[in-house]
């Protein structure tokens, strides 16, 4: 049994009277690549945002190495520095260059020296193939490039888990591949990842675990072979068949 990083128990989230998540249970172990799939509005993104405390869960608990991080005394900023997040809309800092984007967190949060932060940032920027663009500003590079920088920025914090919130949904089709390639390589290196995605090929071929969400609950979960090869629930079958047709 490998090490448990995140354990989510009975998590619920409502926006007003609208219940978005209902009684969600699942765990993330070290090295897991979990893909969360499902139709739009099924609560996938909200679930991911709850895990990073960008949304406050209405009830339930999120255990990070056994400690509940939804409590009032928890330092959310410190927790988030261990859990990286990559957004659909990149959210790169517009007032900084590519390199500064990857350095600022290391300097301000991890209190590293400038030289150290620079070297570490360069390491990851090279990895995602963005090293030549360190002097560019976010507005000057393409969407796929922005997303690769965003991944490098998250990686530079040496997170234990990396959350991806539909990282390729805002990209032109020809740019999707470059981002997924990076993610696939990360998965092969053993990075623990939690990925909300509409890329069924990624979910099937790269992830170790697939969660299908429908209307705020986890409808089915298992290995990619189980969920894609032999779905048990009718909702899952319907959802997957819609994708196959396209």
């Amino acid at each position: 049994m490998s090490e448990m990083i995140l354990q989510i128990n009975h998590l619920s989230k409502s926006f007003g009277s609208h219940e978005v998540l209902r009684d969600i249970d699942f765990t993330v172990e070290k090295g897991d690549v979990t893909s969360i799939i499902g139709a739009s509005g099924s609560g996938k993104s909200t679930l991911l945002r709850c895990v990073n405390l960008l949304e406050t869960p209405t009830s339930g608990e999120i255990l990070y190495h056994g400690t509940d991080i939804t409590g009032p005394k928890v330092n959310a900023a410190a927790y988030r520095s261990h859990v990286g997040m990559v957004f659909q809309s990149f959210n790169l800092f517009n007032n900084m260059t590519v390199l500064e984007n990857c350095m600022v967190g290391q300097i301000k949060v991890l209190k590293k020296s400038k030289e150290e932060a620079r070297a570490h940032a360069m390491e990851y920027l090279e990895k995602v193939g963005m090293a030549p663009y360190i002097n560019a500003r976010p507005r000057q590079i393409s969407g796929g490039q922005k997303q690769r920088v965003a991944i490098a920025r998250a990686l530079a914090m040496d997170p234990e888990v990396l959350l991806f919130d539909e990282p390729t949904s805002a990209l032109d089709p020809e740019m999707v591949g470059e981002v997924l390639n990076v993610m696939q390589a990360l998965a092969q290196e053993g990075m623990t990842m939690l990925v909300v995605t509409h890329e069924m090929a990624f979910a099937r071929d790269v992830s170790s675990h697939v969660v299908y969400m429908n209307q705020g609950v986890i409808c089915e979960e298992g290995t990619p072979e189980e969920v894609f090869g032999n779905p048990q629930r009718q909702e899952t079958k319907d959802f997957l068949s819609r994708f196959r047709k396209n």
Binding site: L54, N94, G105
Partner: peptide, 29 residues
């Protein structure tokens, strides 16, 4: 853009750090 705040929060920055490094420079411009 609220995404700027979320991006900063996601790498563990506090409200003050977010304001000083990310939001205020953009506000000023």
């Amino acid at each position: 853009d609220p995404g700027q705040t979320e991006g900063a929060k996601a790498i563990g920055m506090t409200h003050v750090q977010t304001m000083m490094s990310v939001i205020l420079p953009q506000t000023l411009r």
